[in-house]
Computed example of a mutant assay.
Amino acid sequence: MDQVAAFTTFVRVVEAGSLSAAARSLPASLTAVSRQIAALEAHYGTTLLLRTTRQLALTDAGRLLYDRAKAVIAELRDVELALSSQDAQLSGRLRVSAPSLMGRLLIAPLLADFLRLHPDVSVDLLLVDRPVNLLEEDVHAALRIGRLPDSQAVARKLAELTMIVCAAPSYLQRRGTPATPADLAGHDCLVFSDVPGGGEWRFRMPDGTSATMHLRGRLWINSLDALAAAARDGAGLVRVPSWQVADDIEAGTLTRVLADYELPASAVHVVMPPARLGSPRTRAFVDFLALRWRSNNPLRALAVS
């Protein structure tokens, strides 16, 4: 039995609703379609389809095989497309999503080189601080920070990101340096948020547990750039990615605090929907991004002094 051909026939029968309709669409003889379904049932030792004079119904085993067979066929088509396009000139539109700050500072500057390498590809860069729905929003590749939800998306790890708390030396001289997360209750905190209100920062405690601190925020901004600028001006404590303020920490314009309580680094992935696996331009972009970040990691962690 040609299992791939039998899978294709089975899927077509289920979607067409009858053996005869599937035979017409393949095209194949009704006898050949019936034999392939019978061969599948014999091979797996179970009934896949319940046949009546008016309709077909899937058994539980048939429903399982239908889902798996569709996935196998789609995967084979992806492989065929990838191999047939391997030597072809890349072309078409590529839609990429990234968090605003990371996309603006770490992705956008690389796009000119990518476009020079692939002159027939166009790129849409969507900068949003929310998880996008890859399929509904027609996004081919998206950067995600932290734990990935269970999904059918394909993920490739690029780097790790550490969040740190810091403030200007002038603020710390004026208000004191917090020694533990609990001390934040007496400090002015600069909070990343779209909506003013109570903010929360999480920390890892000495016993390995995590603790959430409810903040008395004095400034809420939905821009990490603006928050870091306010911190440099002495407005308060801010929690930002370490890479964003690495130069400030080195120059002494910001001072890192509560380093012993920082959470472990979060993974940064680029995710793609399964249907994009066979897209040469998507694969080329992901490979390009991974190579650039591997040779010069823009999310470098700061040494804890």
Rank of each mutant, 00 (worst) to 15 (best):
Q3V: 07
Q3H: 04
V4K: 01
F7Q: 00
T8E: 02
T9S: 02
V13I: 12
L19Y: 15
S20C: 11
S25H: 02
L26F: 08
S29E: 13
T31N: 01
S34K: 14
A38M: 02
H43P: 00
H43R: 12
H43S: 09
G45E: 09
G45V: 13
R54N: 04
A61D: 13
G62I: 12
R68N: 11
V72R: 08
E75F: 08
S84T: 11
D87Q: 10
A98I: 04
P99V: 00
I107W: 13
L110R: 11
A112D: 12
F114T: 07
F114M: 10
V123W: 15
P131F: 02
R147K: 13
L148Y: 06
A153Y: 15
L161C: 07
T162G: 01
A168S: 11
T177D: 03
H187K: 12
C189R: 13
C189A: 11
W201T: 09
D207Q: 10
G208E: 09
R218S: 13
A229E: 15
R232M: 10
D233N: 10
G236R: 12
V245A: 02
D247I: 07
T255W: 07
A259W: 03
D260P: 05
D260S: 10
H269P: 04
M272N: 02
P273I: 07
F285N: 07
L291I: 09
W293D: 03
